[in-house]
Design a protein around this nucleic acid. Structure first.
Lengths: 330, 330
DNA sequence: CGAAAAAATGCAATCGATTGCAAAGGTATT
DNA sequence: AATACCTTTGCAATCGATTGCATTTTTTCG
């Protein structure tokens, strides 16, 4: 910066103020210095700036993996969320520091905020425990979580309307004449449980009673779904005619099991996924699913995080979902 | 840090050295201070440390999108690479700053290195132009690129053995009696062109002549593949009996087009993908593909980047690939 | 025991941008 | 012409960890 100042024939203070577009500097001077900076490919030292201003313009995004499964790493949905977050953050002038629960072992506040690595934290996935997020928020970390926004918490949670999603999925199958609906997903997981509640809502609304033996509390992986469907058919035969899946990847595993047995889709079994990842419409049959609007979600998460950074109140919010009907169900 | 020093009854110099495990400090003192630091949840100010040491322990990972397509955002393969990079970097004590070509507009050296936002850069995807990478390397940025390692360049390139991959794919189809092989991929893209050369190699080795009208230079998207396959069948009928795809996502689009026309796979048309994304084995029929070892690749990229950071020479390298035979081809 | 060598610790400068306050330059008013 | 006032710029302290060098403490050994 002192080079720049010398070039422009001003002090470093003036140069600094000019680059930050401080109106106290004469407009002509500002423009001249900014032009010089561009011309000489000047860029300020982020470390020094961060030290002095105590702001980093960086947001840490934590992929909150469930310990013993490999869900996150391979699930295109989570990665899509990260991509959209990156876009949303960049639009606001922030950078994305990517982390998993591995690097930032336990104490998120200390590791990211206290150490001035980032100004705030966005957590993707509630996993099954929220202790780390609770602690971080309590310690004063600006924090937003993607998850089930109905969960009681001391930080804002942004998430889809999972209950409505579950309901729309089941309702759609019921309306198309399917009544014995498998629910593929772990009800011990907050978001999945909401979806399950929606599944129950749909049954109730249609005057049906959901069969609890049709709920398979599997991990969020294709493999687990594949295994679960295979096993149940082996044991009990084809005792269902529809599947509500907790994710498209899960639906994919289920589909494979069905196809291998030459069970017709949607004739014998209709299936609905959740997420609407790119692949969904490319399957054969194309997968009916509940679309989560990740773009919108990312923007809302960033918005609520910035609110906290600006000392304004921040709130949980629900993202609209949408049933996308394709061939796997009709 | 001064708090810590006070707590321990030493100077900040001693505290700093103790935390950095500097052997000049008595072992007992070191351990005492480290214990205190842990106990009080102390963590050093990264901004100050970076300013003073001129090192950030951060690596910028740039997703080098091809401008007019949406490949990267939706392709699970690229995101898998990012995930593996994150792991590999963390293992070495580095953090991952995620970027796309949007934020770091033109001048990567200035934006990331000169500004001390990161110590080095890893670029995922050569796209079609390497100008930005060339410029950054010329300016002195520690840089590693994922791409075609045969490309001449002033920076190390890590990539799969694409030519061998293309050859194995075509060879496999030929050995199984398929001789009119479509090649789905843009030969103007370095990596894809290598795969195409391999495809030609296999033909030559088998004494066959490849039909140039069977090459479809499409974008790396499922949609483009779907359209291309549909169009050619409409125009010329089913004039091929095998497909070599440049990615699994591309294969997915092709598969869909074939299935919609009730063309039997692999009976009438056998198909081989590239990448081996998680979904490949879950398709029906499961997709034969060329597996790229992203874990290995990520480790090698990080290794070569660290070499540069340590002032040691760095080299391009080739990652082994592997044919994974599944039902879509036999 | 005393001096020299070795080990352990502390002092103070440094990294580079930012910013409160002071100073300089310019304009208007009486 | 002198004063008051506003605009523009510069001085110098500051953020907090690191590190060369100096200093203090401990150990060694004649």
């Amino acid at each position: 910066m002192s080079d720049l100042a010398k070039l422009a024939g001003v002090s470093t203070s003036t140069a600094s103020r000019a680059l930050n577009n401080n109106p106290v500097i004469k407009l002509a001077t500002r423009e001249r210095i900014q032009a010089l900076a561009k011309e000489h490919n000047f860029s300020i030292n982020a470390a020094a700036s961060r030290l002095r201003t105590q702001r980093t313009n960086v947001v840490a995004v934590i992929l909150n993996l469930i310990e013993h499964t490999e869900q996150s790493i391979n699930d295109p949905f989570l990665l899509k969320v990260v991509g959209d977050l990156n876009q949303a953050l960049n639009d606001k002038g922030y950078e994305l520091l990517l982390s998993n629960s591995f690097m930032a072992k336990d104490d998120w506040y200390n590791y990211f905020i206290n150490s001035r690595r980032a100004d705030g934290i966005i957590v993707v996935g509630q996993a099954k425990s929220e202790q780390k997020a609770i602690d971080a928020a309590k310690a004063g970390a600006p924090l937003v979580v993607w998850g089930d926004s109905n969960t009681q918490s001391n930080y804002p949670i942004i998430g889809s309307n999972n209950r409505l999603g579950g309901k729309l999925a089941a309702q759609h199958l019921i309306e198309n004449g399917h009544t014995r609906l498998v629910f593929l997903g772990d009800t011990g997981h907050a978001e999945m449980n909401e979806r399950y509640q929606g599944y129950l809502d749909a049954h109730k609304a249609a005057g049906l009673t959901a069969d609890p033996t049709l709920v398979f509390p599997i991990d969020l992986t294709s493999q687990a779904a594949y295994n679960a469907v295979n096993e149940t058919i082996l044991k009990r035969g084809l005792h269902f005619d529809g599947i509500v899946s907790c994710s498209d990847m899960v639906a994919l595993g289920a589909l494979k099991a069905l196809k291998e047995r030459y069970i017709s889709i949607p004739g014998e079994v209709a299936i609905v996924g959740f997420d609407d990842i790119a692949m969904a419409e490319l399957l054969h049959p194309a997968l009916t699913t509940i679309r989560q609007n990740t773009r919108d979600a990312a923007n809302k998460m960033v918005e609520q995080l910035l609110n906290q950074l600006n000392g304004e109140p921040a709130f949980s919010d629900v993202i609209d979902i949408e049933l996308v009907v394709r061939k796997s169900s009709v």
